[in-house]
Design a protein around this nucleic acid. Structure first.
Lengths: 343, 343
DNA sequence: CGCGGCAGTGCAACCGTTTGCACTGTCCGA
DNA sequence: TCGGACAGTGCAAACGGTTGCACTGCCGCG
């Protein structure tokens, strides 16, 4: 058994046909007789013929490959989005090349070049935190290559993007807490230069106002939303407001930290203090009681982004207007906030 | 600005040189004069020339791409391994194509074909749970294509593989528990057809024997290691052995479940019952006390596997003997098992 | 003066597939 | 009987690089 893969010309030689006939037969072209097609197909199976995608890609100018750039691949969120992307692309017969920028703009630029050299047909990007200068994406535009941002997007009406409606998700969480009878609701917020954190904070403010609850600055604490910072935030908030009766946090990790502090301070959850987080991390089901949170539709975001990209790829004269898709999050009410039985 | 990418022949035309000279100049070939090289490089930069990897790959028969097949991409473990793989490959100038088998052998086979058609230069695989028949990997062997398994491997001396020494990790955890003075140690084990689970159980048995502790079948419970099954396992074990003083679980999720049950039963942790898990999941730092666990060196596994694969790719006459690399895990002692102060 | 060697460049084949066009033969209608 | 339509096939040029070999000068040495 040789190490040589059967090529189209091997088939041609064995059947006394030309390579063009083989090529057409394999792609079921109309102008090839059924008899010939059958002969070709039979031999192809027999020799275990597998087309060389590279050659086809080169000739057709279509690589059947999509590129993805994410800040990092570990962590719940991006992993799930990638899962959605990968599955969606595969179903459409596309391969996926994944690059990590490691939250580094220089890396991101290099990734972009790599993908362009690999002749991908379209690119999905979630920006790195350090990306300020976005000139490297100009290249993509100039080549008329479909480009879709997701989650961490370039804020511009000229680009296509898929994002979650963070504001809505946060607003729903707040509405739920208020509905449980909470009136002194604290907020643990994230870095306000991130639009996701900004939107969650905005929703907090707006929800209070819409329900005629006063805004109290001592009930709000901003931090980096890690576990220890969640601890610290809760300690500060509790000191300033011993009477608070709920906490809405911009992520799950911080609220998990807050929960530990509250427990240590003898507060019952949810009877004394109701809790709600954001992201639907796995561990929200590991705390006791389980944490109320907002699901970010990660996999759906991936599927949606890739579908949008594939639409753009298919559109021949590339005149599709840029589209922005906003996904609706889902509030998951669990024990940490459920003080009244649902009626 | 045209949509056309500058090609090597564009450079040739503009400089009145042949394409071969351009090609050689770009790759810094010795037989091209420095003056010419400089002219070529200058123009290349000016036109923003980017080589077409596809064409080069086709001609050279080297795609500069590696393929990876994982059971799934979400979840802590594989995400981290992939991170290691991706970084290692990129540093060596290789692209990575990632496929998910979704724990499905049929999918896995299809993934393999996809990667072969894409002309990858080597393949990394972690087997799906449902893979019993491994004939599809024969193709890879016949083509003389480098193949490295990791974590969930094909048990055969003829394949290259990277695995964790699960036995050692489990043994260390057991030794630690025994060192804390525990004598009635329960084990929550996983499916015994998985070698990782089998090895962890073996270590449990051996550690008891080596420390002159009796093996008691009522202290052992096998299940699928989910959170609810962890609950159930703990309930059963506690009923059968109210006096148990430690639990070693084959993963972290199950021990988290066990912890909740123990807490509900009024047991103090670690004073009454010491706990140890396996995998160093993120949430092990979210429980109170934090969970003692065994780190699996995920990223290192990825880096190691890709390095091994690249060695095989580089080896020209493919006569490298298959190598099996075993990584040493690291026991992380935390609150859930620390009954005595370290001396 | 002739010849070998070397530096620098070009020619052309090749990788495996696709595709516009030309070609052959057959059959049918006028 | 002839022309044209049509089905079925082949030729050859792409796609964008890489590479073995041939070629052209020029220089130095015997």
């Amino acid at each position: 058994m040789s190490t040589h893969r059967a090529s189209i010309s091997d088939l041609a030689a064995q059947l006394n046909l030309s390579v063009s006939t083989i090529s057409r037969a394999l792609s079921d072209h109309a102008s090839i007789s059924d008899a010939t097609k059958r002969r070709v197909w039979d031999l192809a199976r027999q020799l275990n013929y597998q087309p060389n995608q590279l050659a086809a890609a080169l000739r057709k100018g279509r690589s059947n490959t999509l590129g993805v750039i994410v800040p990092h691949i570990d962590g719940h969120f991006f992993a799930l989005v990638l899962k959605g992307i990968e599955n969606g692309a595969n179903q459409a017969g596309f391969n996926v090349m994944i690059c990590q920028s490691n939250e580094n703009a220089v890396h991101e630029k290099k990734n972009l070049e790599t993908l362009l050299n690999a002749q991908v047909e379209g690119i999905l990007v979630s920006l790195s935190l350090t990306t300020k200068d976005v000139r490297h994406f100009e290249d993509v535009r100039r080549r008329d290559l479909p480009l879709v941002f997701f989650d961490r997007i370039l804020e511009s009406p000229e680009v296509s993007a898929v994002v979650l409606d963070d504001y809505q998700g946060a607003y729903q969480a707040m509405k739920h807490l208020i509905g449980q009878g909470c009136t002194r609701i604290a907020h643990i917020g994230g870095p306000q230069h991130l639009n996701i954190c900004k939107n969650r904070y905005r929703a907090y403010v707006d929800a209070l106002r819409d329900h005629d609850l006063p805004y109290d600055p001592t009930l709000v604490h901003f931090c980096d939303l890690t576990l220890p910072e969640g601890h610290e935030a809760m300690e500060v908030l509790l000191r300033q407001n011993p009477g608070l009766d709920a906490v809405f946090s911009a992520n799950d990790l911080a609220v998990a930290g807050a929960m530990q502090v509250l427990r240590a301070a003898g507060r019952r959850i949810p009877e004394d203090v109701a809790l709600a987080g954001f992201s639907n991390e796995l561990f929200t089901l590991l705390t006791e009681p389980h944490l109320t949170t907002v699901d970010q539709r990660c996999e759906e975001m991936g599927r949606t982004a890739v579908r949008l990209l594939l639409d753009m790829v298919a559109e021949q004269p590339r005149r599709l207007a840029p589209r922005q898709i906003v996904l609706q999050p889902e509030l998951l009410v669990r024990g940490s906030s459920q003080r009244r039985l649902p009626e």
